[in-house]
Computed example of a mutant assay.
Amino acid sequence: MADFTFSSLSDHYPPFIERSQISTYFAWLTPRGMRNFDSAGKGPERLKVGKTVIYPTDKLLAWLDDRAKSPSTNVAKPSTDDPPERQPTAKRGRPRKKAHTAKAT
C-alpha cells in the first residue's frame, strides 16, 4: 500500500483557498488556527489580496504533508523529574480593612 500524501489530492481543490474558508476543505483547521500559525512563522506560504489572505493549494498541501510526517512539537512530553514544589501565591485583590473591636470599660 502506498503512503498517503495530501499533495496527491491537489486536483480535488481550487488553486487557491481563502483563510476564512479553510475549515470548509479541512475540518480540523480553523481560520484562527491558521492565523496563529502564520503569526508564529509556522504556517504555509500565503498571499494577501487586499485584506484577504489566501493560500496556494499546492503550498498548503505540501505544508500539511510536512506536518503529517514530523512529530508534533506542541504535545507535552512526560517529565521524568519530580514535579516542582508549589510556591505559595500572593493574595489577590484589595487588602481588607481590619475590623475594629470595641473595648469594654
Rank of each mutant, 00 (worst) to 15 (best):
Q87A: 15
W28M: 09
Q87V: 10
W28E: 12
A90V: 09
S70N: 13
V49C: 03
S8I: 08
A68D: 15
A68P: 00
I17A: 00
R92K: 13
I54C: 00
T89I: 14
K51A: 05
S23Y: 02
T80S: 12
L60G: 00
T80G: 12
G50N: 06
L60I: 05
T89V: 15
D81W: 08
P15M: 00
K51P: 00
T57N: 06
K42D: 15
W63P: 00
R35Y: 07
T101G: 11
P31T: 02
N36G: 04
D66L: 10
P84G: 04
D38I: 05
Y25W: 09
R67K: 15
A68E: 08
I54D: 02
A40K: 13
S70M: 15
T52Y: 00
E85A: 15
I22C: 01
F26I: 01
L9S: 13
K48S: 08
A62K: 09
W28V: 10
F16N: 01
A68G: 10
T30E: 02
T57D: 03
N36H: 09
D66V: 07
A99S: 11
T30V: 01
K51C: 05
R67Q: 13
K98L: 11
L9W: 07
P15L: 02
L61Y: 01
R86D: 15
F16M: 05
P78F: 09
A76H: 14
L61H: 00
R92N: 12
S8N: 12
R19C: 05
A68M: 13
D38P: 02
A90P: 07
S8T: 06
S70Q: 14
S70H: 11
F26S: 05
K97P: 09
S39I: 09
P31L: 01
R94L: 14
R32P: 01
R19L: 04
D38R: 04
Y13V: 02
W28A: 14
P95I: 05
D65P: 04
N36T: 12
D3V: 12
S79F: 06
A76M: 13
K77R: 15
S70R: 12
A90N: 11
A102H: 14
T80C: 10
D82S: 12
S39C: 14
G33L: 08
K59M: 11
T73K: 14
P71H: 06
T73D: 12
A102L: 12
T30K: 05
R46H: 07
K98A: 14
I17F: 04
D3F: 10
G41K: 05
D11R: 13
S70D: 15
F16A: 01
A99Y: 10
S7I: 07
T73C: 12
I54E: 04
F16L: 14
N36C: 09
P88F: 06
K97C: 08
T52F: 03
S10W: 02
A102K: 13
S20Y: 04
G93F: 08
L64R: 03
R19W: 01
N36L: 14
T101N: 15
P56S: 09
A104K: 12
D81Y: 11
R94V: 12
L47K: 13
A27I: 07
G41A: 04
K91W: 10
G33R: 02
G93Y: 04
P83F: 06
